[in-house]
Each structure stands twice: as structure tokens, then as C-alpha cells.
Design a protein around this nucleic acid. Structure first.
Length: 379
RNA sequence: GUGAGCGUAGCUCAAUGGUUAGAGCACUGGACUGUGGCUCCAGCGGUUGUGGGUUCGAGUCCCAUCGCUCACC
């Protein structure tokens, strides 16, 4: 993997990640394909939506079908038939968010599967072994996702553990591997702990750096404070990854601070739950106001969904719980997200990111439906 | 035709004769940030089939009537 910054505007930057399986233009959004699939869409549809890199989940693929199985089948990219690069997270977050009865020790985490309750253990070495077997282009160090709220002392101990684990990951996955390894820093909402953690992780030496443990329930102002405190001081020559974000308002802040890549379930999960993103704001497709609305979801969007279907039909599919609802909604939301990122990248290259951010903040904070129904009333 | 049972929210059903008749689903609105297609929050919705009667008080007891279901002719 190779990374280069081609333009910057303030702290924000436009770059290129070169992998053996293709280029990733940054800033970039990575759709989340937890179990080796972005729910409801095919790899072809994912590519058509503009996706350049896909995220898969170590924890889930380890539990089912098993990392050794995927290795024997030629690696995760071949297994899922996705031609582009793949990033796997380490499993640290899922151990934190999904499994019951987790027991954290200096060696790793003992936990029970959310599928069948069976007992498992993942530590840094195991996390590397699993991710090496999966064979993703970019893999992540095993961290402890510090919960929110955490006391200062807990966060301090947690980041020490994450540093220790990061070193052990690096030790069993040396520099120069065909799989890039990114380090994750923690530190909760404490600015000094964040900087300390970042320094220790950078000191260990990775191919990219990621902020973990954000958007776990803390107020946005605190998250923004951490984003702005860390982004500009992360190594400029390496990709900067903000894990699990997100909300496009949060993305604007993070790109302003110099972050490059993002992943989030928001566009895909919200698509399945009927919340859609458009060039004029968020809408809930289940609203009764769309019952007989023949217009496309987003007139400014050229995705398959917007080219072919009306809001009325999308609402009908959603209320009927049809499979196609999730598929069309997911295609649209991903297309919208990825186009948003491309436009954002263009604005950085042109030196107009500030204007881009100002304009989109207004749009994203706007309530589409309120405006829409007001229009209908006056017409 | 005879007998029995049942009529309560859009649907399926609760509610010793005793506060303002409730629940699930549906419907309406909202939430969702390194994913369990889940889940959660809030709201709308009633002349208790109809008409009488008993009672301090009736969804509940009595009479009539209408409707539905089942059984038997």
C-alpha cells in the first residue's frame, strides 16, 4: 500500500491510497459489509454506487464461516467476489459492543459469541492471525474500545493496554507485509490522553492511523474537540482513519481536521430502516406525504434507484417490507454518500472546502419534509 | 325454522357491577455512528351493534331488536 497527498486546503487534504487491488481516492467512505456483504446489494451494485473499498468484520467472519475456511477459499476478496480492496477491522469493537460476558485481561479478551454463546478468546496475536488468514488489503490492530463514559483512570489504563496490544500486533505483522496494518489510538474524551495514545501508537509505527472509541455516546462537542485536537497532528504521510463515523456533519468536521477515510453503518442501516439522504436533506420514505408522490427520491441523483423509481413506490416497498426496498434504498444512500465524498474531495482540490462545508452544513441540518410540505401548501 | 354462543379501537382480543374502557398488531411521527434486516421512543384511534329496563353506579345484569358463527331439523 502506498499513500500520497495530492492537494490540501487548510488541514483538509485530498489523497490517493494505492493498493494491489486498486486506487482509493481520499477522502473516502467505506461501506460496511460486516459478514462479507453490504447487506442487500451485490458487489456489482456496490461498485456501481461508486464504492472503492469495502469494510469487512473480523469478529463476524471469525465466528462464521471461520477465517481458516476463508483462507482455504482464497481469501476474503475472492470469497465474496469483490474486485476492489478490503479493510478488516480487528474485532475489538464487536467484542465491546456485541458479545456478552466479556472478560478483558492483559493478554486479550475472553468473550461469548452472540450467535451461540460459545466461549472464545481474541488477543492481539489471534486478531492478527485471523486477519492474515482473511487476507484483507488493510488490517487493523487489536484495541480496547474505551466505553463512554469512562473515568480518567480507566481511560488511561485502557489506552496503555491498547498501546501494549498495538506493539504485539506489530511484532507478529512486521512492516513490509503485503497487508497494510493500521494502528488505533484511544483516550476517550480526554484531550491529553488522546494525544498521549496517538504518540505511543505513532511511535510503534504503522501504515496508517485510526481514531477509535468515538461516537460511542459522548456529546458531539466533545467528539469534535477530540477530532480537531488529533487530526492535524497525526502523521501527514499516512492515511488517517476515523472509525465508525458517520454522520455527514461529523465527517465535515473530521475532514476539516485532516481525516481521510471513514466507515459507518449509517447509510446502509438507515436505508434498511427507511431514512434516506438527498441533496436537499434527510427524508423518511415511510411518511404518508409520499403516498402518491411520483417524483424521484432525489432529482439531482443519478443512481439506479433515482433513475427508475418514484417516492410513492419506494414508500410502498418499505411499508410492505419488500426485499427490494432495502436494496433500492441502500443503492441510493451509498451512491449519495460516495458522491458526497467525491464532491468534498473536489472542493479540497479547488481550495473551496470551507465553502463546501458551510453549504452542506445548512443542507444537512435542514428538515427536508418540513420544507417540502410547506411548498405543497403554498402551491 | 329450533337451540346455543358471540357482538368492545382498522384487526385479534382484555377488562369481580365501582376512578378517565386497556393491550398487541396496524396506522402516524421520531431515533439509529468500527451493523443482529433488529430494536427503541412518542402519538392518533371508542356513542362497548341498536333501543329500552334494573341499579347510587352497566362493557358487565334483564328484555327486545339487528348482525355473525356453530349445531340440529
Amino acid at each position: 500500500m502506498k499513500f500520497s497527498v495530492i492537494a490540501s486546503d487548510g488541514n483538509s487534504r485530498a489523497g490517493i491510497i494505492e493498493t494491489e487491488r486498486g486506487l482509493v481516492l481520499t477522502p473516502q467512505f467505506m461501506p460496511v459489509g460486516t459478514l462479507g456483504t453490504v447487506k442487500s446489494v451485490s458487489p456489482e451494485e456496490l461498485g456501481n454506487a461508486g464504492a472503492e473499498v469495502m469494510l469487512c468484520n473480523t469478529y463476524h467472519l471469525y465466528l462464521r464461516p471461520g477465517h481458516e475456511t476463508i483462507r482455504r477459499l482464497g481469501g476474503v476478496q475472492k470469497f465474496i467476489s469483490w474486485p476492489g480492496p478490503v479493510l478488516t477491522d480487528s474485532g475489538g469493537f464487536q467484542v465491546y459492543s456485541l458479545s456478552r460476558l466479556r472478560n478483558i485481561t492483559p493478554d486479550g479478551v475472553e468473550f461469548r459469541s452472540h450467535l451461540d454463546g460459545s466461549l472464545h478468546f481474541i488477543g492481539p496475536e489471534k486478531a492478527m492471525e485471523i486477519q492474515q488468514a482473511l487476507g484483507a488489503d488493510i488490517i487493523m490492530a487489536f484495541d480496547e474500545c474505551t466505553p463512554y463514559p469512562s473515568t480518567y483512570d480507566y481511560a488511561l489504563n485502557s489506552l496503555r493496554l491498547t498501546t501494549e496490544w498495538a506493539k504485539r500486533c506489530r511484532a507478529v505483522h512486521p512492516e513490509g507485509s503485503s497487508q497494510a496494518l493500521f494502528g488505533i489510538f484511544q483516550g476517550s474524551i480526554y484531550r491529553d490522553l488522546r494525544l498521549k495514545s496517538l504518540e505511543e501508537i505513532v511511535g510503534t509505527g504503522f501504515d496508517g492511523y485510526a481514531a477509535g472509541g468515538l461516537s460511542v455516546g459522548e456529546p458531539k462537542e466533545l467528539m469534535y474537540e477530540i477530532i480537531h485536537a488529533t487530526g492535524p497532528v497525526m502523521p501527514a504521510v499516512k492515511p488517517r482513519y476515523l472509525m465508525g463515523i458517520g454522520d455527514l456533519l461529523d465527517v465535515l468536521e473530521a475532514v476539516e481536521a485532516g481525516y481521510d477515510i471513514f466507515d459507518c453503518v449509517m447509510p446502509t442501516r438507515n436505508a434498511r430502516n427507511g431514512t434516506l439522504f438527498t441533496s436537499t436533506g434527510r427524508i423518511s420514505i415511510k411518511r404518508a406525504g409520499f403516498k402518491e408522490d411520483p417524483s424521484p427520491l432525489d432529482p439531482e441523483c443519478s443512481c439506479y434507484t433515482c433513475r427508475n423509481f418514484s417516492r410513492a413506490y419506494l414508500r410502498h416497498l418499505y411499508l410492505s417490507r419488500e426485499i427490494l426496498s432495502m436494496r433500492l434504498n441502500t443503492i441510493h444512500n451509498l451512491s449519495f454518500y460516495i458522491r458526497f465524498f467525491r464532491l468534498m474531495r473536489d472542493s479540497i482540490i479547488r481550495g473551496e472546502f470551507t465553502e463546501f462545508k458551510r453549504k452542506w452544513r445548512e443542507t444537512l441540518e435542514r428538515n427536508f419534509v418540513t420544507l417540502h410540505s410547506r411548498t405543497l401548501r403554498t402551491s
